[in-house]
Measured scan of single mutants.
Amino acid sequence: NQASVVANQLIPINTALTLVMMRSEVVTPVGIPADDIPRLVSMQVNRAVPLGTTLMPDMVKGYP
């Protein structure tokens, strides 16, 4: 099973992602692959992302 990117904390709308905000976890449904975490750094979320939420491609501005 492939690990996905999961919010490690509440991420407010328009926040630029940092490594501490994300963790990898095997979840269903599958979200953004954990391998993409380095690419996500400094990209902004377009909505508030609660703790434990799987990051989906449509939540991150400019992804992929």
Rank of each mutant, 00 (worst) to 15 (best):
P57L: 05
M43P: 02
N46P: 02
V6R: 03
D58K: 06
V20Y: 08
T18Y: 03
S24R: 05
A3E: 14
L19C: 15
P38E: 08
A3R: 05
A48N: 11
A16Y: 13
I37A: 11
I11S: 01
K61F: 10
M56W: 06
L40Y: 03
T15N: 04
A3L: 10
T18I: 04
T28E: 15
A48L: 10
P29H: 06
M21P: 03
Q2H: 14
S4M: 02
P29K: 05
P38M: 15
Q9L: 11
I32Q: 01
L10Q: 12
M56G: 05
Q9T: 11
V49L: 10
I32T: 00
A3V: 06
L17H: 01
Q2S: 15
P50E: 15
R47G: 06
Q2A: 15
I11R: 00
Y63N: 05
V6G: 01
Q2I: 10
V27L: 04
L17N: 02
S42M: 13
P33C: 15
A48F: 12
T54H: 02
I11Q: 01
E25Q: 08
Q44A: 15
P50Y: 10
V6L: 09
L19I: 11
Q9R: 07
T18H: 05
V30I: 11
I32D: 01
T54V: 11
S4C: 04
V20F: 09
T54I: 11
M22D: 03
G52W: 04
V20N: 11
R47F: 09
S42V: 03
A7R: 01
R39E: 05
L19A: 09
I37R: 10
I37N: 00
A34L: 03
L40M: 06
V45P: 03
V45F: 00
T15P: 02
T15F: 05
M21Q: 04
R39T: 09
P38A: 10
I13M: 09
G62W: 08
L10G: 09
R23Q: 06
R23C: 05
N14V: 03
V49W: 02
G31H: 01
M43D: 03
Q44D: 04
G62I: 05
A48G: 07
S24F: 04
V45M: 05
A7G: 03
D58C: 15
P50K: 14
Q44E: 11
G52H: 11
V6F: 00
T53C: 06
A16H: 13
L51W: 12
R47H: 15
R23E: 04
L40F: 02
V27K: 06
A34E: 09
G62D: 09
P57D: 05
V30R: 04
I37C: 04
S42W: 07
S42A: 14
V49G: 02
P29F: 04
I11V: 14
N14P: 00
I11W: 01
M22R: 00
N46T: 15
S24K: 07
L19D: 13
R23V: 12
N46G: 12
T54G: 02
D35M: 14
E25D: 15
A16C: 09
L19T: 09
I37H: 01
M56Q: 13
Y63F: 10
M22Q: 01
T53D: 10
V6N: 00
V30M: 13
R47P: 02
V26I: 15
V5H: 00
E25L: 07
A16Q: 10
R47D: 08
M43Q: 10
L40A: 00
R23G: 08
G52P: 01
P29M: 05
V45E: 02
D36W: 08
T18D: 06
D36Y: 13
N46D: 13
T53I: 12
A48K: 07
V26R: 03
V30W: 08
A7E: 00
A34W: 08
K61L: 14
V6K: 03
M59C: 05
R47I: 12
A3W: 10
N8L: 06
E25R: 04
P29L: 06
M22Y: 01
M59S: 06
S42H: 11
Q9F: 14
A34F: 07
V27Q: 04
S24N: 12
M21L: 06
T28L: 07
D36I: 10
G31S: 02
A48M: 13
T54C: 04
S24G: 12
I13Q: 08
T18N: 05
V20H: 14
M21R: 00
S24W: 07
S4T: 04
A34S: 10
G31L: 02
M22K: 00
P64I: 15
L10T: 13
T18S: 11
L51N: 12
G62N: 14
M21G: 03
P38L: 13
S4G: 05
M56H: 11
T54E: 02
L19G: 07
Y63G: 04
A34N: 05
V41N: 04
Y63M: 07
D35P: 11
P38G: 12
E25I: 05
M22W: 02
D58A: 09
M56V: 10
T18K: 08
A7P: 02
M59V: 07
N14R: 05
E25V: 10
N46C: 13
P33M: 09
K61D: 10
N1M: 15
G52D: 12
P12A: 10
L40E: 01
E25G: 08
L19V: 10
Q9W: 06
V60Q: 01
S4L: 02
P57S: 14
R39Y: 12
N1F: 14
Q44P: 08
V41S: 03
M56C: 09
D58R: 06
